[in-house]
Design a protein around this nucleic acid. Structure first.
Lengths: 166, 166
DNA sequence: AAGTCAACTTGACACGGTGTCAAGTAATGT
DNA sequence: ACATTACTTGACACCGTGTCAAGTTGACTT
């Protein structure tokens, strides 16, 4: 908090006049970042895909390219969520929104009969959601030193292999 | 630290007579757990698989079933690693050992010419390593409420889809 | 010109957790 | 009788979060 205050050139206490605690500051920051990067507009665009596979690709592209923009705050929130209940709830809410995006893509595949055999709609959503997690992005991007474009490319392939019937 | 001391029925200070700090206590605990559960013997067994696909399956089974046993400590170590350099290094070392197991399975697939087209050995290792991360286990097991056996089953399928050529 | 309000300041403090230090004790072996 | 080892109690420093009180500053009324 004092680092942030310093960067904002106000006192640490003034920060508490704007945000009741660290968790809410971080949550407000993610909301601000969503707004700045116009995530809603991008999601809307992905919804206009003309078939399930295209929609899956679009979703992976939109969310996968949004991760680096929120990563800084996401990391802080993730670190907090083990000890701070409010941070845990805030993070879970955001991740449920992501899950919703995953479910929409899966649902379109199912409607076209293109969901891989033996996968229920829920299971497929769970898998897509897990593959597209911030942690996986982090691991491939930083631990494995992948570039962002390589990550996106690999994820498009990986998710199709996992979900789409042949 | 005081909770652990309480559970061990010694004073908090006595804990510091055995372990210099929290990070080393946790690391020592993972080592102890590895020993107790005889991870080495299980890995050795998986190494006797007669082909790449069987080896991949065996590896996913061994590591995937080991995760729940180390999860408690792993979680604590993961939570620490953002702020504690020693914890970060300790965790990375353990994860490099896991990566080594992944690399071995991939290498056998490559030798048999069964590695999926367009995948380098390194890329395939990165993908397998990421799929088999503790975070993915955690998400499927707790966030998605999957059973352990379902997790193992799905991971065996998922990794084969991702890595093995058809 | 006086008064009010909002946004900020400085400075103090409580609390919880980690790690350190000093002094004392109790059981074991020599 | 003595030393050693493994512990104890109790104190303290440091850091980060969050709280509280009192004072300052500038802008906007009336």
């Amino acid at each position: 908090m004092s680092d942030i205050a310093k960067a904002a050139k106000i006192s640490r206490q003034a920060l508490y006049l704007h945000f009741p605690n660290r968790a809410e500051l971080l949550v407000a920051t993610t909301r601000y970042l969503d707004e700045i990067h116009d995530i809603d507009a991008k999601l809307l665009k992905s919804r206009s895909a003309k078939n399930g596979i295209e929609r899956l690709d679009a979703w992976v592209g939109v969310w996968g390219n949004h991760i680096p923009k929120i990563y800084g705050v996401a990391k802080a929130l993730l670190a907090m969520k083990t000890s701070d209940e409010e941070a845990r709830i805030a993070w879970n809410e955001r991740m449920q929104a992501v899950r919703f995006g995953c479910a929409a893509a899966v649902s379109m595949l199912l409607a076209e009969g293109k969901l891989r055999d033996g996968l229920t709609e829920l299971e497929a959503t769970d898998i897509l959601w897990t593959l597209m997690s911030v942690h996986n992005w982090e691991q491939l991007r930083y631990e494995c030193h992948w570039s962002q474009s390589r990550y996106i490319k690999a994820m498009k392939i990986l998710t199709k292999q996992a979900l789409v019937s042949r």
